[in-house]
Design a protein around this nucleic acid. Structure first.
Length: 457
RNA sequence: GGCGGUGUAGCCAAGUGGUAAGGCGCCGGUCUGCAAAACCGUUAUACCCCGGUUCGAAUCCGGGCACCGCCUCCA
């Protein structure tokens, strides 16, 4: 059996055998949110994917050091603060706390470190000084830019030549820049903006530099894994590499892991379309495990289409599975290779949780469950970060309660009463007519020993 | 235009050389006054198209086509 862990490295666009820098230890840095609005399902996916990766790395015996930052100094936050007439720090703090609450509510493990830009200004200034001293940065009118033409590897992550990047750019020409692709390391700030003193005047860090600085601070100049959403490959991660490698002369991150983005009902989730789904709103309707399992039944690199229909499907599956697990009789035993070995191997191959869940569903469906089988199932659930879901997911359509309350309760009760009277005297024609009436209201009647209940159709 | 990704049943989704996991749905059966739930069973001669390599390809190579993402600070 092959015990190696294989990871798709966005830097080489290949699956590679994972080799850690220090035996038994893994350092991982993931780009967290810019805190200027409530976090959405894209953030959720990223948090869930990297939570899975951390859990699995721990499971196979690695000691992990997991760092996820907050970008709390940024143009977007400043703009939002101006729009709402609230202090920049308050906006940043509000959304930072919200994010922490959201990922906690999703049942994700906390990173070991969650640094903020505002708390690392000195480190950032020192790094910018080093970049200037190495000849890669230049100062113009109180601002510092990175000179990409000096860094010969520029474009190695996104696989682009600087020429081709320029050929189709929407970039506005900035006369202060030596090259159009140069980016700001330090920006001078307008009156009222958050600002710090620096050798170049009052200002604040540009986007990108914080991640170079903070990853190095916690993990060293070279570390094992750098993660984030696919959309960050260019320019953000490309620029991080340029900033870090020009001063260290070392490779920045050995493996780059990028999770796929999400669509909502087949459309790109975006502000302009107005279809952003917040984590908070999703959690009001769906149990966290449904959301997690939805994401985990897709491979982390593929784009995913999110819709309530798909979440309902997951819920249905889970309710069935839950009943299977509690029913130890009545299940036919079939041949299946070692479940534990199968799912671990799936996960060793670029964290293929979708495949692993296939085995999980199959195993539960085809096993007479014994104590040891349950132990195996629970081991899987713990590693995937869904342990306890069976106590949290009910088949009482509770997730649709808010929807159901909009129905005319009185009228439904009247139909049920009338129909049951008809059923007692075996007037089936009338009973069926009343069932149809209920269906026209969009609900379905369910007869049980304990009476008649109903649910949304 | 450049770079990257994707294309597998009605829908979703695994599968990197050995003859198509899993889920939802559909259909049939048991059960039920009828339904629902549950349970049992069925459901891709076939993996966008055309060539090639191979004893053998969804999987590798070449050429197309289609869709999606990124291409600088939120557009």
């Amino acid at each position: 059996m092959n015990h190696e862990l294989r990871i798709y490295n966005s830097l080489t666009n290949k699956k590679e055998i994972f080799k850690e820098l220090i035996p038994g230890k893994v350092g991982i840095y993931v780009c967290g949110p810019t805190v200027y609005s409530s976090s959405h399902m894209g953030h959720a996916r990223s948090a869930i994917v990297f939570d899975l990766i951390i859990r699995f790395l721990k499971f196979v015996g690695y000691q992990t050091k997991y760092v996820r930052n907050f970008t709390d100094v940024d143009d977007k936050i400043i703009a939002k603060a101006a729009e709402e007439g609230i202090a920049v720090e308050k906006i940043a703090n509000k959304y930072k706390l919200e994010y922490l609450e959201d990922v906690k509510n999703l049942g994700c493990l906390s990173p070991d470190f969650q640094p903020c830009v505002s708390e690392n200004i000195n480190e950032i200034i020192e790094l910018i000084k080093k970049i200037i001293a190495s000849g890669y940065g230049y100062v113009v009118a109180g601002e510092v830019y990175y000179n990409i033409s000096k860094f010969s590897d520029y474009g190695k992550l996104s696989n682009q030549s600087t020429d081709s990047m320029l050929s189709h750019t929407r970039l506005e020409i900035n006369p202060n820049k030596k090259n159009d692709l140069d980016f700001a390391l330090w920006k001078s700030s307008k009156e009222g903006d958050p600002s710090w003193n620096s050798p170049w005047g009052k200002g604040r860090p540009g986007w990108h530099i914080e991640c170079s600085s903070m990853s190095t601070k916690y993990l060293g100049e070279t570390f094992d894994i750098h993660g984030g959403g696919r959309d960050l490959i260019f320019p953000h991660h490309e620029n991080e590499i340029a900033q870090s490698e020009c001063t260290s002369n070392e490779k920045f991150a050995n493996y780059w892991i990028h999770n796929g983005l999400i669509n909502i009902n087949k459309e790109k989730m975006s502000k302009s379309i107005g279809n952003i789904v917040n984590i908070q709103d999703a959690l009001k309707i769906w149990n966290k495990n449904i959301i997690k399992i939805f994401f985990l039944t897709h491979h982390y690199r593929t784009p995913v289409d999110l819709s309530s229909e798909k979440l309902k499907e997951i819920k249905k599956t889970l309710i069935k599975i839950k009943k299977k697990i509690s029913d130890t009789k009545n299940i036919r035993e079939r041949k299946m290779d070692d479940f534990r070995k199968l799912w671990i191997n799936a996960m060793r191959d670029d964290f293929n949780s979708a495949k692993a869940f296939g085995y999980y569903f199959k195993y539960i469906n085809e096993r007479a469950l014994t104590k040891s089988n349950i132990d195996l199932i629970e081991e899987f659930e713990i590693t995937m970060g869904i342990f306890g879901w069976r106590n949290e997911i009910n088949d009482d359509t509770s997730s649709e309660e808010s929807f159901e309350q909009k129905f005319d309760q009185e009228r439904i009760q009247k139909i049920i009463l009338e129909r049951n009277m008809a059923r007692q005297i075996k007037n089936w024609k009338k009973a069926d007519d009343l069932r149809l009436q209920a269906e026209e209201l969009g609900i379905e009647l369910i007869d049980t020993k304990n009476g008649t209940s109903w649910k949304r159709k």
